[in-house]
């Protein structure tokens, strides 16, 4: 019985440490953009570790991950191999990391939606924007509608 209990603890421990590894975010932003920091703050509050990199042009990162250019926002983030462009809510990222679909390369909240995380006032409901998924052929699909 004790052995079974220890095995369960060990399995959950391994799963926990694996999750801890994927919560690290590499955030690529321009030094002059203020709103990206607000998005980073929200992600940190949700338990992610955010490593911020400053540079004006992050096109190579976006291209490397096959992001369609029309989905561009002010910042890009790489989380466990997925590209997250712009002010994507944490709940969508958590779902992506949990489900890990093979046909999605990343998510984007194109442009600068007023009522998105980091842009909306704290406590306000997210609304009036789409989170769009893209695959390795640059096909788009609706991931979440706010």
């Amino acid at each position: 019985m004790n052995r079974l209990f220890l095995s369960i603890i060990a399995i959950f421990g391994l799963a926990g440490s694996a999750f801890a590894q994927v919560t690290s975010i590499e955030l690529y932003k321009s030094p002059t953009c203020g709103c990206c920091k607000e998005w980073a703050k929200i992600m940190e509050e949700k338990g992610y570790t955010v490593n911020i990199h400053h540079q004006q042009d992050w096109t190579p990162i976006k291209q490397k991950h096959g992001m369609p250019p029309q989905l561009q926002s002010c910042h890009s983030a790489v989380i466990d191999g997925y590209l997250i462009e712009g002010h994507v809510p944490e709940s969508d990222i958590a779902r992506l990391l949990k489900e890990r679909p093979d046909n999605i390369k990343g998510l984007a909240a194109p442009g600068m939606p007023q009522h998105s995380p980091g842009m909306a006032r704290p406590g306000d409901k997210y609304k009036d924007f789409k989170v769009i998924a893209f695959d390795d052929q640059q096909h788009l699909s609706l991931y979440q509608q706010y």
Binding site: S30, T32, Q72, S73, M112, M119
Partner: peptide
């Protein structure tokens, strides 16, 4: 389209028309 790296277009739209963005 490139100021700051992201361009004025990020907040004001490709044609400065807003395009539903915050600016």
């Amino acid at each position: 389209s490139t100021a700051g790296g992201y361009g004025c277009s990020a907040c004001h739209g490709k044609y400065a028309n807003g395009a539903g963005n915050v600016g």
